[in-house]
Amino acid sequence: MSALPELQAALGGGLRGNEGPGLWALFSEPQAVAERRFAAYRRNVTGNWRSALASTYPVLAQLLGAQRFRELADQYIATYPSGSGDLNAYGGELASLLDASTLREALPYLPDIARLEWALLQAYGAADAADFDLAALAGVPAEAQAALRLHVWPAALLIASPWPLADIWQAHQLATNERDVALAGIDTAPSSEPRFALVGRSEGSVFAVSLNAGEAAFLHALQAAQPLAEAIATALAADNHFNPGATLQRLIALHTLTGFQENKNE
C-alpha cells in the first residue's frame, strides 16, 4: 500500500528514466508485462515533449537536421522537466542549453536563433493591442510632438546579435530550393557591431525583421519610455543617417507602435 503522492512520485521518476526499486511492485501486472506497458507511457511522454520542441523550434530543426535536433531535444528533456500542463509552454530554456552546447562550434548562432524562435511563440499568443491612430498623431500640435511618448507593443522584442538572425529566419521560411539560394546570399560571419532583429506580430502573423543601428536605438529608447525628441537624439547618436519619419512609418506598419501619450507637463 502506498499513498497517492508517493505512487505518483515513483511513476513520475520512472517516466523520466529514474526507476526506483519499488516501481514494478506498484502494478498488478507481472513485471515483464508492466515493463513493456510502462514503456508505452514513457514513449508517449517523450514523444509529446519532442513534438512540442519541434513545433516551437522549426528553424533550429532545419539547421540541425532531424537526427541532431532529436538528440538536442532528448538532452533538453533530460535536463528540463515540463512545468506546465500546457505543452505550448515547454521549451523556454533551449537557448540556455545551446549556450553550453558543443553544437555551437559548427553553428555559433544557434542559441540566438533559439531566443528568436521562443520570442516568436510568445509574440504569437501575446495580448492584442489597438492599431496606431495616425489621424490622432497628425492632430498633435507641432510644439507638443517632442514630448510625445510612443507606446511599443509589449511583446515586441529587440534581439541584438553578432549574426543576421532575421535574415537567417526569413530564409528558413522559404521552400527548400529558394531557401538554399537565400542562405547562400547571407554572410553568417559574426560582425563586431551588433545586428538587430525585431520580433513582432502583424495581422495575427509573427515576423522577424532586421533593424539598422539607428532604428534599433530609436525603438530601444521608446521601450525605455524616452520622449520622442530624446529618442530621436539617441537614434541619431547611434546612426547619423537615422530618418525619424521613415522609421516611424515602418514601426507603425509593423504594428510595433500601438499608440502615444501627450506629455502635457513638459
Partner: peptide
C-alpha cells in the same frame, strides 16, 4: 493525473482506484 512535485508529464496517466484518489 499528469503531474507530480513541480513536474508535469503532459500525458493522461491512470489513477489507482482507491478512496484516497476519489477524495483527491
Amino acid at each position: 493525473w499528469s503531474s507530480a512535485g513541480a513536474q508535469h508529464f503532459n500525458d493522461l496517466l491512470p489513477l489507482p482506484y482507491t478512496e484516497a484518489a476519489i477524495q483527491q
